[in-house]
């Protein structure tokens, strides 16, 4: 069975993010351009939001 991919815009950098048809709500996707972790907020229609990040001290 083939599924249709949907292309959405990364909410952080505006790059293309491709979601397969079977993608589930809550799945985490990495943006290939900026590396941001994105959460699938809804599937009908597909929407994305930035996944919650733990606050991190980068050490410098």
């Amino acid at each position: 069975m083939t599924t249709t991919a949907t292309v959405l815009e990364c909410v952080v950098c505006g790059g293309d993010v491709e979601l397969e048809g079977g993608t589930l709500q809550g799945e985490l996707i990495d943006c290939a351009d900026c590396g941001s972790e994105l959460e699938v907020a809804s599937v009908a229609p597909f929407t994305l939001r930035e996944a919650p990040q733990e606050a991190e001290d980068w050490g410098q």
Binding site: C34, G35, E37
Partner: peptide
């Protein structure tokens, strides 16, 4: 290469 990331070792 555009290197601008929110996490990882070399952002």
């Amino acid at each position: 290469r555009i290197v601008k990331e929110r996490d990882g070792l070399y952002r």
